[in-house]
Amino acid sequence: MYKNLLALVIIMACNACTQAQPGQLHVLNIKNAKELRAFFRYTGHDIPFISGHRGGVNKGYPENSIEAFENTLRHTPATFEIDPRLTKDSVIVLMHDATLDRTTTGTGKVSDYTLAELKQLQLKDVEGKVTSYRIPTLEEAIRWSKGKTVLILDKKDVPFEMTAKIIRDHHAEGHIMVTVHNAGEAKFYHDRNPEIVFEAFVKTPKALQEYEALGIPWTHIMAYVGPHNKPELQPLYEQLHQRGVMCMISAAPTYDKLPDAAERAAAYQAIIRDGASLIEADRSIEAAEAIQSLVPSGSSKQRFFGLR
């Protein structure tokens, strides 16, 4: 009993030491693509963490905004799934919807506006309240994120070649990943830039075989296995883990929507206990708090987590 109490005190002290102070952010210490691949390599003793869906959706901080990223990082280390779209003058901005109405003070299609026109709009938060924050460009987000976090680019209306070019031009392979829905998409990027790391849809053993058939290195893949934590995933987890691949479940369309906080916390914890290494969540801060007790001591991955 004494030993258990002492261990609890030590864990609490360690947790207290890693709390961000005012002005500090939790950061991921990843310097290049090689370190990014090491960060995502499954070891069986990894530190579970959160990927903020659309940057994390929290009251007062609009989705796909740099301010939302920073708000999450004040509470927890995280990666961020974001949504690049093209403006009328072919600039890439961050916006999930094809239209402006839900998340901004504007109306109509994103593609009908120039960047200068979009910069005049204000972003709305999850409750629809207007904030002072503006639509960021992908270039602004790439520059901001270096040395802090990893951005994962979802597939919207930006041509693949244009996505590959902006990563190459900014030498951003160490902190920008690309979402691919199948092995063919991964091959397109890998053939043009073998340093790019993917959030890859690998929901079935058949999909796994397709990535192998096209020669996509497993060292370059973090696997998205779907939005549901279910027993049928266990054989897929085993195959992916044997290949050194971390797996992710997205709680955004499922467990984030549970009405009870305790129920949500139990669901987040079960995702990690059952085999996933990270959770994509709208409720980025809440999900991170729920899985904090599952962080193992002495993980070699601790070197990637810091405060700045």
Score class of each variant (00 low, 15 high):
residue 259 P to C: 05
residue 220 H to W: 00
residue 270 A to I: 04
residue 211 Y to C: 04
residue 207 A to H: 08
residue 262 A to K: 14
residue 198 F to V: 05
residue 156 K to F: 09
residue 154 D to P: 04
residue 187 K to T: 11
residue 245 V to I: 14
residue 219 T to Y: 00
residue 237 Y to W: 02
residue 221 I to L: 10
residue 168 R to A: 12
residue 196 I to E: 06
residue 218 W to N: 11
residue 157 D to W: 09
residue 218 W to E: 05
residue 216 I to N: 07
residue 273 R to W: 04
residue 273 R to D: 07
residue 191 D to Y: 10
residue 205 P to V: 13
residue 243 R to K: 13
residue 258 L to F: 13
residue 228 H to D: 15
residue 282 D to T: 12
residue 231 P to L: 04
residue 223 A to V: 00
residue 264 R to V: 07
residue 202 V to Y: 03
residue 161 E to Q: 12
residue 234 Q to E: 11
residue 185 E to K: 10
residue 181 H to C: 02
residue 288 A to G: 15
residue 282 D to F: 07
residue 189 Y to H: 15
residue 254 T to A: 06
residue 278 L to H: 08
residue 233 L to A: 10
residue 260 D to F: 04
residue 264 R to Y: 12
residue 223 A to L: 02
residue 254 T to K: 01
residue 270 A to E: 10
residue 248 M to F: 03
residue 255 Y to T: 15
residue 199 E to V: 01
residue 266 A to L: 10
residue 223 A to Y: 02
residue 233 L to M: 14
residue 271 I to L: 03
residue 257 K to F: 01
residue 191 D to A: 13
residue 252 A to H: 02
residue 219 T to E: 11
residue 201 F to D: 12
residue 221 I to N: 03
residue 156 K to E: 15
residue 195 E to A: 13
residue 238 E to C: 02
residue 262 A to I: 00
residue 263 E to P: 00
residue 149 T to S: 14
residue 248 M to Y: 03
residue 237 Y to N: 05
residue 227 P to D: 14
residue 167 I to W: 08
residue 262 A to M: 07
residue 223 A to Q: 01
residue 260 D to V: 06
residue 170 H to E: 12
residue 180 V to G: 04
residue 187 K to S: 10
residue 224 Y to C: 00
residue 266 A to D: 07
residue 160 F to C: 08
residue 215 G to D: 12
residue 266 A to C: 04
residue 176 I to W: 03
residue 166 I to Q: 09
residue 157 D to K: 14
residue 152 I to L: 09
